[in-house]
Design a protein around this nucleic acid. Structure first.
Length: 301
DNA sequence: AAACTTAGCAACCGCCTTTTG
DNA sequence: GCAAAAGGCGGTTGCTAAGTT
């Protein structure tokens, strides 16, 4: 079981960072023989590493389809959403982000997201933190997404918003909101209603677009190619508030979040949540802290 | 410029599950 | 059916580069 990796005597095994030669050796061996059977691979290849180490190096670093570089805002958004559903199921989350590894996502969560939780003195596993993500960070990420997409689509011609200031393009956003008006769920509905997404019908799910289709009961869809036309997201609902942001011209296609059905936050009753929310959002310091988070949160792209 | 701190990330560890003989 | 081996996963550690004092 745990000690199954002693195919070579311990002092013969190399540890620590991989060298270029080792990488080449591993790549060459896998190219010729394929991956899997990691322990025998480790022996046969001549690498003085454990099978586990070889597997990890391949999956997290050497595999050709690994996507290097910073997570895009839409990837971050997806991670936040999926984590709120699945918790620390990094591998499962990574499966929804082609080219990203569980290790990378885990590192992102620990270094970025948990940092914010610590900063706000909120337990990152708490319902309150989940709510914070949903209510504020995700829309902010969407703003980023929208800014990015509009700046790229207009090819910097009429770009009025600087990249360093996360200001919302109010005209754009309000027009979006107007256009999305019909999608807003009836706030009188006590039950969460899965909103029909008009853009999700066929094109996003075509196999050649590599569209990721979430598991059953999921309410998310995303097209990693970035050629989808529409993105709808974040109807955050409680009994007197119905928050909705829609974004056009981007590569995500998200049906509204279902606060009652998704993740730990769904366990919190509305009155319970309102009390909690009222407690902390009345705190001006905390609120301002929160809104200064763009300085903490690096949208590197 | 040096010392110190922080952030990011690759790699390891240990446990659990699955596969194999 | 059982035990051992292998694979997989999440948590943690340690190193390095960048930033700050």
């Amino acid at each position: 079981m745990g000690g199954s990796c002693n195919e070579a005597s311990f002092d013969e095994l190399r540890r620590g960072p991989w060298t270029l030669e080792e990488d080449d050796l591993l790549i060459h061996y896998i190219t010729c023989h394929g991956e899997g059977r990691w322990n025998s691979l480790a022996k046969s290849s001549g690498l003085r590493r454990t099978g586990k180490s070889c597997r990890l190096r391949w999956l997290n670093y050497l595999k050709p389809d690994i996507k290097r570089g910073n997570l895009t805002p839409q990837e971050q958004l997806l991670i936040l959403e999926l984590h709120s559903k699945w918790g620390n199921r990094w591998s499962k989350i990574a499966h929804q982000l082609p080219g990203r590894t569980d290790n990378e996502i885990k590192n992102y969560w620990r270094t970025r997201v948990q940092k914010q939780a610590r900063y706000l003195k909120i337990d990152s596993n708490s319902k309150r933190f989940v709510e914070t993500l949903r209510r504020f960070w995700m829309p902010r990420l969407l703003e980023k997404v929208e800014q990015n997409s509009s700046s790229t689509s207009s090819s910097s011609s009429t770009s009025t918003s600087s990249t360093s200031t996360p200001e919302v393009d109010q005209n754009n956003l309000s027009s979006i909101l107007q256009a999305e008006q019909t999608l807003i769920m009836a706030s009188s509905s006590p039950q969460p209603t899965k909103m029909e997404n008009p853009a999700s019908s066929s094109s996003l799910c075509s196999s050649d677009s590599m569209a990721m289709v979430f598991p059953e009961n999921s309410n998310l869809q995303i097209n990693p190619n970035g050629d989808s036309a529409t993105c709808y997201i974040s109807s955050i609902q409680n009994n007197d508030c119905n928050y909705h942001v829609g974004i056009n011209n981007f590569d995500m296609d998200l049906t509204p979040l279902d606060m009652h059905a998704v993740g730990p936050a769904g366990d919190m009753t509305v009155p319970e949540f309102q009390v909690a929310e009222a407690d902390w959002m009345k705190d001006d310091d905390l609120a301002s802290t929160f809104w200064s988070m763009d300085e903490l949160w690096h949208f590197r792209n």
